[in-house]
Design a protein around this nucleic acid. Structure first.
Lengths: 332, 332
DNA sequence: TTGTATGCGTTATCAA
DNA sequence: TTGATAACGCATACAA
């Protein structure tokens, strides 16, 4: 890890330019010369310094990714798709978690100095910082954020899926609903889901804030809601983890799901399939989100595309047993 | 992102050395000079190039991490603990997934050129490659691998926990057992668990290979096992995901858990608590594993320690309802 | 076909 | 207290 191109050149009896050309195939090299060089390279076990290469090339060959937290399967899956494609494209992936960090701005800017572009999840970083990054010319792909000049955006569809979900629930004959996990900000994923169900259910659904999108918060909120009088007939949860918490609350209160109260989630994480009853949810194409982000970033970096792209991937309604009884049930 | 130290120096009317000293506090600078420099830095929005700094400093200020796949909560949690501490120590984290990759050797060696040291999970990379990395002088922390000269190793305790788990199961009065998820290699985590339960259960337990450690594989293996005559009274699974698959198989066969067959897992992933029945398992301190790995690596890199460390973290037996009936049940 | 020399953006040594 | 200047390791015009 510390033999340089100079040592190789000396050993092969050539100049460093020739060594470089040989290794990169970037210019003519006589067959005999190439032999000598490769021999020296082998003998010295030479690997070009990434730092040297990057400095000379003026690129890092690395992508960044910024997420709030990696807890929960959603971010993990997206990250996996991202890393896979980035690796295919010859780029490393540098990660940064912002959850509970004090100087997010500094961290993100430091990251920007290490990569050729980065993927930023939802609200992992505050709005002004995103704007500053755009101003600095950082190549950016934003997931689950509204279109922004100077950056690509990418998300999966929310509103229509939420409508479809709501329609399915009304099909079960339910009348009173609650939406668990109020939107963090207007115009985020959860807000779109809320708007979607609301368009169908109107005044029959109320929004309930859970604080965070976790099992615990879902549990607390659902317990309070289900203990009160006039409890809702169905709980539409902003994501699967909140829904899992709701299932636990129902169980603790001795309520049958879906007999006494129906529950739905969002994302289709692994635990959704293994919950009892199995969770009806909306499946996001998480890996594909990540993969697409990596390709979009590559286009931005290589200059293959200069106009921002704003993509929306489709989702899939996954009906299981937590939302109500179905004639012939299918295990998904 | 492309203003250099030269432009700052020119604007402030000083030399680049003075700019560097001012910014790093690495030498005396007159108060008045410092003012001028900082002013220029602010006006130009100068940030030192990471590449330049790294090249001059001779370090990347970055850690690598190599895992087989990020699917499942285990790797994610460890990674999170790792990234958190690395960030505290001022180091970025570069990730590499080896699952399904063809040229793992090249990828890992490329990674080695981007970082000051790396964490490698279990069998994410083949033995000879690890040896080569050691030979190349790469600072290494290995998780769940046997001690090796020239690298730190780190794992959580397996054998004793497995014994305790087995003892608990015998306490339920069970007589015939199966271990689902045969060890991949001798001397890995799963093998230690196997040895542990075997030490207690002796010939009463048989090992069953599941191929991979996934829900699907656990499901298939358990179904075959539970359908046959003389089915085991308890399934000890190598990890929680296999156990979740076993639960599904039991349900499909109309078997009651734990009434007809008991099931246990390992790791205590989120889904374990939400499975029905809730899964008895052994909790690994996943975040702490990652955090410890980051600190160990830092010690290796800074030279604070030169003798390899081999650490084993303790686990916790988590008794829930899938292993049998308990007098006063506690929801964990 | 090969070599020389310069640039990439810092840090740090040594003089002044 | 400050400034030249030599690394750091490579890529690549430009010459030869």
């Amino acid at each position: 890890m510390d033999v340089t191109i100079y040592e190789v050149a000396k050993r092969a009896g050539v100049s460093i330019a020739t060594v470089s050309r040989t290794l990169r195939g970037t210019g003519p090299v006589a067959a005999r010369t190439r032999e000598k060089v490769l021999k020296a390279v082998k003998e010295l076990d030479f690997t070009p310094s990434r730092l040297g290469v990057s400095l000379a090339e003026g690129r890092h060959a690395a992508n960044g990714v910024v997420f709030p937290d990696l807890a929960g399967p959603y971010y993990t899956e997206v990250l996996l798709g991202y890393e896979e494609v980035a690796s295919e494209l010859g780029r490393s992936v540098v990660i940064l978690s912002t959850k509970g960090r004090s100087k997010v701005g500094d961290l993100v800017k430091d990251l920007a100095g290490r990569v050729d572009g980065m993927l930023i999840f939802g609200h992992a970083v505050p709005e002004p910082l995103v704007a500053e990054l755009v101003r600095l010319g950082v190549r950016l792909v934003l997931i689950s954020r509204d279109p922004l000049p100077g950056a690509d955006t990418l998300r999966s569809e929310n509103t229509d899926s939420a409508r479809a979900l709501a329609a399915h629930l009304t099909g079960h004959g339910y009348d009173r609903f609650a939406f668990l996990g109020a939107p963090l900000t207007s115009r985020d994923d959860v807000d779109e889901r809320w708007q979607g169900v609301r368009a169908v259910l109107g005044g029959a659904i109320e929004a309930v804030d859970t604080g965070h999108y976790t099992v615990e918060c879902g549990f607390e909120a659902a317990r309070k809601l289900l203990k009160g009088r006039g409890r809702p007939r169905a709980l539409v949860c902003s994501d699967d983890e909140v829904a899992l918490g709701a299932l636990l609350a129902a169980e603790e209160l001795g309520l049958d799901v879906p007999g006494d109260v129906a529950v739905t989630g969002w994302d289709d994480i692994m635990a959704a399939r293994h919950a009892r009853p199995a969770l009806t949810t909306v499946r996001q194409p998480m890996r594909r989100l990540g993969a697409r982000a990596a390709r979009a970033l590559d286009e931005l970096i290589t200059g293959a595309r200069d106009t921002p792209s704003h993509l929306i991937l489709t989702t899939e309604l996954v009906i299981r047993s937590s939302c109500g009884h179905h004639p012939q049930e299918v295990r998904t």
